[in-house]
Design a protein around this nucleic acid. Structure first.
Lengths: 348, 348
DNA sequence: GGAGTCCGTGGAATCGATTACACGCTGTCG
DNA sequence: CGACAGCGTGTAATCGATTCCACGGACTCC
């Protein structure tokens, strides 16, 4: 592959001049410029990003470490991150941690080794030592969705508190009194926060949240199934289950059906994170929708601000309830909305 | 960030010795080795992958250019690719082309600029000039899922021919005679092949495939909706629709429901590509399942073989029919299988 | 007409690693 | 006892870019 030297030789100028043309530095004569451009063309020359990065100490690359690519929420997040990054002239390398701290560590390490300009992280299980160290060492970093308290790192996330209150109101209005929750790992902020908000909302209705109605999941479908089976085995099973992510909701749906029971007749179901497929499940699932795309874009903007020396800002955006049929038939003034994306239009 | 020079200074040796220790070259004294290792430890030194890549002319990175990350099929593919690559000591950079040739070009270009060791591509729309050029220039490359004929590039893909024949048999057995298809872009191999196989399978039953029953889609949900609406507007609408990817199937489902019609009573529906959610839709959708994970792993192995100088092999794996309820109730000897992954167990 | 300015250009240092080559030392063998 | 092999190490070249500095020539201005 042709290097800058070959171009210089072909154009009859020095490498310095070629470099100047490539980075359109002002002081190059038109003559030299056209000759260099011609040489670039005929040689099919493309600058070596590796060499450039070594010299300039910047890679124009962002690292994104997420907990689970197979989760449609994170897939969408990753997509919006890449889009915004591209618009700002950056590439993105995605590391999928699969909710495993060791894998998260692996990806943080390789990304750091590659000298990415900044790191976008949705930490699994309270984060890894490496990540904390990198944050403290001053690596530009932004947390997205989940975060780690006590670190001076901007956080871009959705606040589900109000939407969870709406959900509890919705469930209450539909006559459900015994409400249970499938929690995520307590070590993740989203894991604990959603339970907290749920508990507080219940308190507003004078309802307790007994320990038996708090199932411990890990954001994966299988745990949703397991926890829900536990609920169903209770002497007095809950009337409604709130799964704190979409995969666990799927597991819950499985578990309920496996007993020959029906949603919402035998048990109501709601989920945190809305995804296109929820419109098409049987029944369509009531969910709390995050502004995922906006979250991804805001996170990138914050990180790039930080990288380029501007003060980065934490961002919190509201989530909102999207009522469908999985909790029972809502009244007319329920916030019924299935028209969010083309895929979702016209159904349920 | 500490460099190899700092380590050398701290350990009281030359950079060459440090490098030798790091790459565990045999001829280093134990004394030097321990001193270097100690210095590495206290400085928290990590080698700069950028510098190393420049010198060694290899990045131990694979590029993966796929057509649409939001499509669960490709998400799963990407995940298995990353897994296998990691096992072989490589990283993966994913480029999402969103079915747009210009974006595909953009990603191929940046990946090439970064001097990735090899490229895994699922070409959108017949591929870009850049890609063809790279292939001809000898960039290690492997096609996965889709490919471009006439290029000396190994292909790793699933053969859906037999499964499509099974599907047609299944539909025929259930009494459906007027069968339509939603095709993908003709410029993609998967787009044209699936139509071809469908046509041939129909021919075995003496059935034609009239042009009116071939809808032109683009592998996105919206096109599935549009095409299906066209089918429904026909004086004699088809009795069954076969969508050649999962997103178009979703669009079709939408379109059918929007008219107040039911699947499979009013129209049967089947899809190419099986995904976990198909078990949970209303009704569960009959689909042709590709061995996605195996495809991704085989593609990485082929590419790494090519990179490391071993002869790479093209691989073709069979797809298979997974009958569910969207085409009508099958007989007992139908190949009913909902037990592929934990998420899918026990339902439909 | 001499001093100073500006412009285009090239030489060379530099980024952080790898690695060919040379060198000094020790030990072996004829 | 001299030659030679082998080992551990350091010096320096190298990868492909960017960029500081200096230089020569043209031009302006007093």
């Amino acid at each position: 592959m042709a290097s800058i030297k070959d171009v210089a030789a072909a154009a009859g100028v020095s490498v310095a001049t070629v470099s100047r043309v490539l980075n359109d530095h002002p002081s190059v004569s038109d003559d030299a410029r056209t000759r260099v451009l011609a040489a670039v063309e005929t040689l099919g020359y493309r600058p070596n990003a590796v060499a450039r990065s070594l010299r300039t100490d910047q890679t124009r690359t962002l690292g994104l470490v997420i907990s689970d690519v197979l989760n449609p929420y994170f897939t969408e997040l990753a997509r919006s991150v890449e889009e915004e990054a591209r618009a700002l002239g950056y590439s993105v390398i995605i590391g999928n941690a699969d909710e495993r701290p060791d894998l998260q560590d692996h990806h943080v390490r390789t990304l750091l080794d590659r000298r990415i300009d900044g790191l976008l992280v949705s930490p699994a299980e309270g984060g890894s030592p490496l990540m904390l160290e990198a944050a403290r060492a001053g690596t530009p970093m932004v947390f997205v969705d989940r975060w780690i308290p006590g670190l001076d790192v901007p956080v871009v996330r959705a606040d589900g508190r109000a939407a969870i209150r709406d959900l509890v109101a919705h469930l209450h209005r539909l006559g459900h009194r015994r409400l249970a929750i499938i929690a995520g790992p307590a070590a993740t902020t989203t894991g604990s926060e959603r339970v907290e908000a749920f508990r507080e909302a219940l308190a507003e209705y004078g309802a307790p949240l007994p320990d038996a109605y708090i199932g411990q999941g890990d954001f994966q479908a299988e745990s949703g199934r397991r926890v829900t089976e536990g609920f169903l085995d209770l002497p007095e099973p809950p009337e409604a289950v709130f799964a704190t992510d979409n995969l666990m909701a799927l597991g819950a749906l499985d578990a309920i059906r496996a007993r020959g029971l029906q949603v919402p007749r035998d048990m109501a179901l709601a989920a945190f994170d809305d995804i296109p497929w929820f419109v098409h499940t049987d029944p369509p699932i009531t969910a709390i929708a995050q502004p995922t795309g906006e979250l991804g874009r805001a996170a990138v903007r914050a990180l790039v601000d930080r990288i380029e020396g501007r003060p980065p800002q934490s961002v919190t955006l509201p989530a909102r309830l999207v009522a469908r049929r999985s909790c029972g038939e809502g009244r007319a003034n329920d916030n019924r909305d299935d028209n969010q994306t083309p895929v979702q239009r016209s159904t349920s």
